[in-house]
Write a protein that binds this DNA or RNA. Structure first.
Lengths: 226, 226
DNA sequence: ACCAATTTAGGACACTTGACAAGGTTTGTC
DNA sequence: GACAAACCTTGTCAAGTGTCCTAAATTGGT
């Protein structure tokens, strides 16, 4: 029963910062403050009411600003939203890069750990609410598509390393495919067992099942013979 | 190599109707025609430009109607969208119910078949574009959440039957969890290997991998000992 | 052929949206 | 304390939104 020691995780949880702001250059500190306040309010609005609620006026109202002031900091809605997505996605990337540091345990343990962390994040309101919006947007906005896929590329990196270790006999392409499949499987659970979803309560069992399943497929997978 | 006979599928593809319209009752036939035309145009708009493009005026323009006429058939935008989602989701449900008829082969084969059909559907533009919108909407609209989850309940039915057959020793709850996990895994691939997604070209390998993985986890899964 | 039920046309209303411009206020620096 | 850059307020604009209303045209059954 190699999967039962979830409680012994070295990293009990990840606390992904809401947003990662780029280092400031120029301008007064007050300006940067309000800029961050704007993006925070925008994120809050996105999480609570969805993408369609992200109007300039609502954002301005949420953080107690006049519209004119908002357009001073972000001239267009487009600009604001791009800045928001950048800060949002960067925050996840920072965290995923940190996960890459886990190198001292057996690969089986690390797989369980990484998957556990991701599945834990999926249950948060922020992730459950934001990512479906991003997925939907990416269908019509190449910028979003590219940014989101770049995020997932980073998310797969830690999986890739583990898979390589477990199956050095497979081709890099196979490693990629396995990491992709595992990552996609977990993302899919968002819709069913994410925050306030019907099967939120079954996430513990699903996590056990998922990790068990992922470990198995990595161990036994054989690419098509042809 | 029990998974290699994808080409021997009995049902080479499913052609999910775009929309399933309820039987008409009362009214002239012309009225029903335009009603269906409206919903078809709305679906087209939803797929091509996303949910935010679903304005009354755009829908009216797309099917060459005046706004006044559109509001005659659907008094409010809300009403139109609900009718659209109903027709849309019904179309999938009709198809999923049809899959339940596959009962003459071995459960292993049927699992591969059902998963193959679902993964095939995921690659269509319609499904790739519509479902992320639905997932996003379901976060803020209980009506959509309920309708979507009802759809997935039906989608899992065929999986449930197969899993029951393969593992009669497990509890119904375990059967549910397995079906849920498998279904969620496949849905997750939408974002990565759906229509015009970066890994669309790897869907064949992913499908093999998925089916292989799903069969294994069903065969070996053991619930937590406690 | 008629007529009532149904469908279409066209426009009007009140409101929100993103964007802009011109002026006023704060902030840091010399 | 002057001065310029940064920041904020206020008001306005055209375009787009959902909803409603009235009158004309079409339809299907008699």
């Amino acid at each position: 029963m190699p999967f039962s020691n979830l409680e012994s995780r070295r990293f009990k949880s990840i606390a992904i910062a809401d947003l990662a702001f780029p280092a400031r250059e120029g301008g007064y500190s007050k300006g940067h403050e309000t800029r961050e306040q704007i993006l925070s309010s925008a994120l809050h609005l996105l999480v609570e009411e969805g993408y369609s609620a992200l109007s300039m006026r609502k954002v301005a109202a949420t953080c107690g600003l006049k519209i004119g002031n908002l357009t001073y900091h972000f001239a267009t809605r487009e600009e604001l939203i791009r800045a928001l997505l950048d800060a949002l996605i960067s925050a996840y990337e920072v965290e995923f890069d940190a996960i890459l540091q886990f190198t001292d345990e057996a690969p089986e343990e690390r797989l369980a750990e990484v998957c556990g962390l991701i599945l834990e994040d999926i249950r948060t309101k922020k992730t459950t609410h934001v990512f479906p919006e991003l997925w939907a947007l990416s269908n019509h906005d190449p910028f979003v598509l590219e940014r989101v896929q770049e995020l997932y590329t980073r998310a797969r990196r830690s999986l890739l390393e583990i898979i390589r270790e477990l199956r050095p006999d497979l081709s890099p392409q196979c490693h990629e495919d396995l990491a992709l499949f595992i990552s996609a499987s977990m993302e899919g659970l968002t819709v069913f067992a994410g925050y306030r979803k019907p099967f939120e309560g079954r996430m513990d069992q699903l996590e056990r099942m998922a990790i068990q399943s992922f470990l198995r497929i990595v161990q036994i997978y054989q690419p098509a013979s042809s």
